[in-house]
Design a protein around this nucleic acid. Structure first.
Lengths: 141, 141
DNA sequence: GGCAAAAGTAACCATCACTGTTACGTTCGG
DNA sequence: CCGAACGTAACAGTGATGGTTACTTTTGCC
């Protein structure tokens, strides 16, 4: 495991919600989303909870409740999704502080941090180039 | 945890080996590398074992043995290191097959795979821009 | 040939993140 | 007030990781 499938689940949910919206169903329950993603409704609620906290979806409670997109699918990028559900950085430094008596141990951390940030930025930029609407369009093509 | 600190450990080891080489010590033992990285010698041997399998370092066994760079530090990129030690993809698809009766479930996987590959490629390209020699130079600057 | 040093590696443990599941509290429309 | 659905806590199972010990294998050197 270890690799992030959260983005996949969240993107799937959003694409499905957008398709349902176009078909006239503005609101979907976690059960309905879970049926498409083929997972447990709690997983969906947790994922959509992250998206809600990031302002990408709205959740209504009570009777007849469910989730709806908080803004147009053309304005939700895969980067938005990734930032909402992916807390972990792609690359990490040492768990334990390296030996500071060694020149490499003393100086390597800021250098690697900088390089990791650069690589992560290009990764994010790539994700920012696709929206949920793009994804749905390619799915339906 | 979960985030990869393997690249960090391997890059640290390589930079330290290159610095030692410039100081006239062509070969370092796993104990010596572990002392700088501040971890266990077995961890270093596992990491350098990966690098050896990738052709980045050479290992000699027996008395007076140890590790040395298999090629110039200017020709070992951070991407080489990442490929050698990072088996996991950055993003993964669903664990379970999605519901194929849903249009989204049926079509989303190739789309996401494609987008994930694109983003991963830019990430790799960024890592490919730095070599162990670059890193050591920035450490010593 | 034997010794000693060090790589290679297996076995095991603790920790942690993640998914999945159940269960329960909370909210809110009708 | 009732019921539907979100929110969330608690727990189990799985798997990756890092750390540690211990053993085998290799090999230079005396």
């Amino acid at each position: 495991m270890a690799a992030n499938s959260r983005v996949t689940i969240a993107a799937h949910a959003l694409a499905w919600m957008e398709l349902a919206r176009r078909r006239g169903r503005e609101v979907l329950t976690s059960e309905e989303v879970a049926a498409s993603v083929n997972t447990n409704a709690v997983i969906v609620r947790r994922s959509l909870g992250d998206l809600q906290r990031a302002g990408l979806v709205r959740a209504r409670r009570g009777n007849g409740a469910g989730y709806s997109l908080a803004r147009s699918a053309t304005e939700i990028t895969l980067l938005d999704v990734w930032l909402a559900v992916s807390p972990e950085p792609l690359l990490a430094l040492h768990h334990c502080e390296p030996n500071l008596e060694c020149p490499v141990g003393r100086g390597i951390r800021p250098v690697l941090t900088d390089l990791y940030d650069e690589a992560t930025d290009t990764f994010r930029a790539a994700l920012a180039r696709s929206t949920v609407a793009d994804i749905l369009q390619r799915i339906l093509a």
